[in-house]
Nucleic acid binder design. Structure first.
Lengths: 206, 206
DNA sequence: CAATTGAGCGTACAACTGTACTCTTAACTA
DNA sequence: TAGTTAAGAGTACAGTTGTACGCTCAATTG
């Protein structure tokens, strides 16, 4: 198996990926990136793009996957912090907000393609979000003895609230962002306590 | 003031709007609609478009506004149904789901432009969603004696959950949609009961 | 009725797009 | 070392886009 050649190829592949990520912004979504623009930014001829991806879509899906990996790593880090003690809700929210603060463009990619034009994209993003729901579901089952269906419903609600506040936080001032975060934490508390309360009532046959 | 001429103009204006709405679908978002496509569909010359809108963006904002009006009318209808009695949560959810069932494309427009490329769009959509939050906030204050801040936080959470489930419901089968709706209702109950519970605790000085 | 207005059309153009095809040349293989 | 492979460049083309400009001609106005 080759070393030098494959290595060079991998490098330009990476430069394509970085070029694409670098062009994403509040005013430029992936779907209005053109193959030529990306190639230009990556320093290759437009036609050379095809040596690495068949499509812009194929490149996009790669970005989504990479983003998912990064996010999951981050949440693992968050869980470690929780084990060392601290409020589950606050630490999770802090972690998430930290991520979108530092990677606004890749988070925008997720947001946009979640309801975007390509079903392959939509599916990919849905898959990433489902990872979150599933992990949280397991956490709730293990830590708080929830039954699966209840746990999933609860997890889904929590993830929805967090993800959405992330979306709104993108454009806000530091001040408004703080307020939003406070409200988010309250909403998460509401839903957690609500679920607990309903479970108690059910157990008491009430 | 003219009658005939202005009327004709209004008619082709409407045909532009309908053309645009007609072209929106799961696979075609407003931002990849071209002026020429819309003009073609509306049966006018590309350049005639400018007699009615300066921009595609101006057309888009019009669509968002129209969508907002429709939605608010619908929610008023829902409130009337509630006054004649019934579960607040269930009726609201039914109403909302009915809307996106019957107007999936215009709802997709809202979803997409919510985190889209144009800040004018984002603002417009945010404004529409805020209408919902505000109306619900007032409702909670009047009907359940919430204090304003708590009411707003609660309303925001509820609206977020509903709006988001709407987004997910778009692509689901009838069956999955029912399940989603069930979970949504549970999540709304969680959050409402959680808020009530926390308020009680606070009042008991607990 | 004569003059004005303005919605809509047609032409034209420069900019940009994706991609088919051919060529180069450095890295690999045997 | 001679032959093969494949990444990347260059050219070319047909298609689409927004929009500037000038024209037409029916409705409106005075």
């Amino acid at each position: 198996m080759s070393t030098n050649r494959a290595l060079q190829k991998e490098q330009t592949r990476q430069s394509i990926i970085e070029a694409a990520l670098g062009q994403l912004s509040a005013d430029k979504s992936f779907s209005n990136l053109s193959l030529r623009e990306v190639a230009r930014e990556a320093g290759i001829a437009p036609t050379s793009f095809y040596r690495h991806f068949n499509d812009m879509e194929e490149l996009g899906l790669t970005l989504v996957d990479e983003c998912g990996v990064t996010l999951r790593q981050l949440m693992r880090k968050a869980r470690r912090r929780i084990e060392k003690k601290g409020s589950v809700i606050k630490i999770s929210v802090d972690t998430f907000m930290e991520f979108i603060q530092q990677n606004p463009n890749i988070f925008r990619l997720l947001l946009r393609e979640r309801s975007g034009t390509s079903s392959a994209f939509r599916d990919a993003v849905a898959r990433e979000i489902n990872h979150f729901k599933d992990e949280l579901t397991h956490y709730l089952i293990e830590e708080s003895n929830y039954e699966h269906e209840q746990a999933y419903t609860l997890a889904e609600g929590l993830v929805t609230l967090v993800f959405n506040s992330g979306a709104e936080a993108l454009d806000l001032s530091r001040n408004k962002k703080m307020q939003l975060k406070q409200r988010l934490i309250k909403q998460l508390q509401f839903i957690v306590i609500g679920a607990l309360t309903m479970r108690k009532r059910q157990n008491n046959g009430n």
